[in-house]
Deep mutational scan, measured.
Amino acid sequence: SSRTRFTDYQLRVLQDFFDTNAYPKDDEIEQLSTVLNLPTRVIVVWFQNARQKARK
C-alpha cells in the first residue's frame, strides 16, 4: 500500500485539530475527510500515529 503524501495545508489542519482534540469523533473525522479531501481511514490512522508520537 502506498503512503499518503500530505500537503502542508492538510498537515496544518490536522495538527491544529490535534492540538485541541486528540480524539476526534466520527462526525469530526467525516468533516476533516470532506474539508481535506482525504479518506476517513487515512485520517483515523494519522490521529493514531500522532497520539503515539505525543506519548513519547
Rank of each mutant, 00 (worst) to 15 (best):
S1M: 13
S1I: 11
S1N: 07
S2W: 03
S2Q: 15
S2P: 12
S2Y: 10
S2R: 09
S2L: 08
R3E: 15
R3M: 15
R3Q: 13
R3H: 15
R3A: 15
T4G: 04
T4Y: 15
T4W: 03
T4K: 02
T4A: 01
R5T: 15
R5W: 09
R5L: 15
R5Y: 15
F6H: 04
F6G: 04
F6I: 09
F6K: 02
T7Q: 05
T7E: 14
T7K: 03
T7N: 05
D8I: 02
D8C: 08
D8F: 04
D8H: 14
Y9A: 15
Y9Q: 15
Y9C: 09
Y9N: 13
Y9D: 08
Q10L: 01
Q10A: 03
Q10T: 07
Q10K: 02
Q10R: 02
L11I: 11
L11D: 14
L11C: 04
L11E: 14
L11S: 14
L11Y: 07
R12Y: 01
R12W: 03
R12T: 10
R12H: 07
R12D: 07
R12K: 09
V13D: 14
V13P: 00
V13F: 10
V13Q: 13
V13L: 06
L14P: 00
L14G: 00
L14T: 00
L14Y: 00
Q15R: 09
Q15L: 11
Q15S: 12
Q15K: 11
D16H: 07
D16W: 01
D16T: 05
D16N: 11
D16R: 09
F17Q: 13
F17S: 09
F17W: 12
F17R: 13
F18A: 09
F18H: 08
F18G: 01
F18P: 00
F18L: 10
D19W: 05
D19A: 14
D19P: 03
D19T: 15
T20N: 10
T20K: 14
T20R: 14
T20C: 12
T20Q: 07
N21H: 06
N21R: 07
A22F: 06
A22P: 14
A22H: 09
A22I: 10
A22G: 07
A22K: 09
Y23N: 03
Y23S: 13
Y23T: 09
Y23I: 06
P24A: 05
P24H: 01
P24W: 02
P24T: 01
K25A: 06
K25M: 04
K25Y: 01
K25H: 03
K25F: 03
K25D: 07
D26A: 12
D26M: 10
D27N: 12
D27G: 15
D27F: 12
D27M: 12
E28R: 05
E28M: 02
E28P: 00
E28F: 03
E28S: 07
E28G: 06
E28H: 07
I29F: 08
I29K: 02
E30Y: 04
E30S: 10
Q31S: 11
Q31N: 03
Q31Y: 09
Q31E: 11
Q31K: 13
L32I: 08
L32P: 01
L32K: 01
L32Q: 01
L32A: 02
S33R: 02
S33V: 02
S33N: 05
S33G: 06
S33P: 01
S33A: 04
T34W: 06
T34S: 10
V35T: 14
V35S: 13
V35G: 13
V35M: 13
V35F: 06
L36Y: 01
L36S: 10
L36Q: 00
L36D: 00
L36G: 04
L36F: 03
L36N: 01
N37V: 10
N37A: 11
N37I: 07
L38T: 12
L38E: 04
L38P: 00
L38Q: 08
P39A: 08
P39E: 11
P39Q: 09
P39N: 08
P39M: 01
P39I: 00
P39S: 10
P39F: 00
P39Y: 01
T40M: 15
T40S: 06
R41C: 12
R41Q: 12
R41K: 13
R41H: 07
V42N: 04
V42P: 07
V42W: 11
I43G: 00
I43L: 10
I43N: 00
I43T: 13
I43E: 01
I43C: 07
V44F: 10
V44C: 13
V44W: 05
V44K: 06
V45N: 03
V45R: 04
V45A: 09
V45M: 06
W46T: 00
W46N: 00
W46M: 00
W46K: 00
W46C: 04
W46D: 00
F47R: 01
F47N: 01
F47A: 03
Q48E: 08
Q48F: 02
Q48H: 03
Q48D: 11
Q48N: 08
Q48Y: 05
Q48R: 09
Q48I: 05
N49G: 12
N49V: 05
A50I: 03
A50S: 13
A50V: 11
A50R: 08
A50E: 09
A50M: 07
A50W: 04
A50F: 10
R51L: 05
Q52E: 14
Q52P: 11
Q52S: 05
K53L: 14
K53E: 15
K53Y: 06
K53A: 14
K53V: 15
K53S: 10
K53I: 08
K53M: 14
A54C: 14
A54V: 11
A54G: 10
A54R: 07
R55M: 14
R55A: 09
R55Q: 09
R55H: 15
R55F: 03
R55T: 12
R55S: 10
K56W: 04
K56M: 10
K56V: 09
K56I: 06
K56P: 13
K56H: 12
K56S: 04
K56G: 11
